[in-house]
Write a protein that binds this DNA or RNA. Structure first.
Length: 273
DNA sequence: AAGTTCACCTGATGGC
DNA sequence: TGCCATCAGGTGAACT
């Protein structure tokens, strides 16, 4: 489910639990994404502390606790963080439940491509540095100039570069397709072949698409929901993603689907030469 | 080093 | 109804 707008939507909808004390927690399935196992002392590390703050870093949900531990959650492809009643009973694919006095949050992830980490507050910067997470797509530091410098010498298709979290953090398959369409850039274009003019339209197109989607609560294709269970409505505003063989909103040419870097890519062959 | 491909896992969908 | 193949909002290991 989750690209930047979907993660942002989940983070916002979790605001009500800020200040709450964790009364109990239970791990039902500790094995998530390969190499990511929830530690045995998970409950011991978080129980009785309070939720100090919840924010988004790249596609990660970062939950700061009062005892200087930080819970970092990645939703993978199919993950959800759901706000439930306090005595909610775990259903299939509910891997973790964290309880408060009057409510609880549930980490549900059928495909288990998600991940949960728990680290010390002081190691937060190092955590993302280690993962080599690039500048956030909504950051003021994400500029045409930055992108030009970072793409220099890269022959990979621009589609693939924009999906690379080390180059720019937050984009996923949907929003890359949408942003490239808005700029009339062919997704196969070699990254270092983009003109200065193209980069100058691309960066704002990316930011505007993401912001519009956040306003709509993200894109729900299947799994994405806010913590309250409400879907995102940006799906209705998608221009090319998932629209194979449907007319381009600009020129009526049929939208094509091709595979780039192993991922489905939707584009208009006429508008995106 | 940079560029590919593939595996990880479950569920939904469509063809036969 | 069932069986099989294909596909899915992501990531990173293992190849070339």
């Amino acid at each position: 489910m989750p690209e930047l707008p979907e993660v942002e939507t989940v983070v916002k909808s979790l605001e009500p639990i800020i200040g709450n004390q964790i009364t109990a927690s239970k791990v039902y399935q500790s094995q998530l994404r390969i190499g990511c196992k929830i530690p045995k002392d998970f409950s011991k590390l978080i129980n009785l502390s309070k939720i100090k703050d919840i924010k988004r870093i790249a596609k990660y949900i970062v939950i700061e606790l009062s005892n200087s531990e930080v819970l970092i959650i990645h939703l993978g492809m199919s993950g959800n963080l759901l706000l439930k009643e306090k005595d909610y009973k775990a259903k299939k694919h509910d891997h973790v439940i964290i309880s408060f006095k009057d409510s609880s949050i549930v980490f549900r992830d059928p495909r288990r491509f998600g991940a949960i980490f728990i680290i010390k507050n002081q190691n937060l910067d190092a955590f993302f540095k280690d993962k080599k997470i690039g500048i956030d797509a909504l950051s003021s530091k994400f500029t045409p100039k930055y992108l030009k410098a970072t793409l220099k010498g890269r022959k990979t298709p621009i589609k693939t570069s924009l999906l690379n979290q080390k180059i720019v953090a937050g984009l996923g398959n949907i929003y890359v397709c949408e942003a490239l369409f808005l700029c009339g850039i062919n997704p196969c274009t070699a990254s270092n072949d983009l003109t200065e003019k193209e980069l100058e339209t691309l960066v704002p197109a990316i930011k505007n698409t993401l912001k519009k989607s956040i306003k709509a609560g993200g894109t729900t294709l299947k799994d994405h929901k806010s913590a309250n269970g409400t879907p995102g409505y940006f799906s209705q505003e998608l221009l090319v993603y998932g629209k194979e063989n449907q007319p381009c909103p600009e020129c009526n040419t049929n939208i094509q689907k091709i595979i780039i870097g192993g991922r489905s890519t939707f584009f208009c062959p006429k508008c995106q030469k």
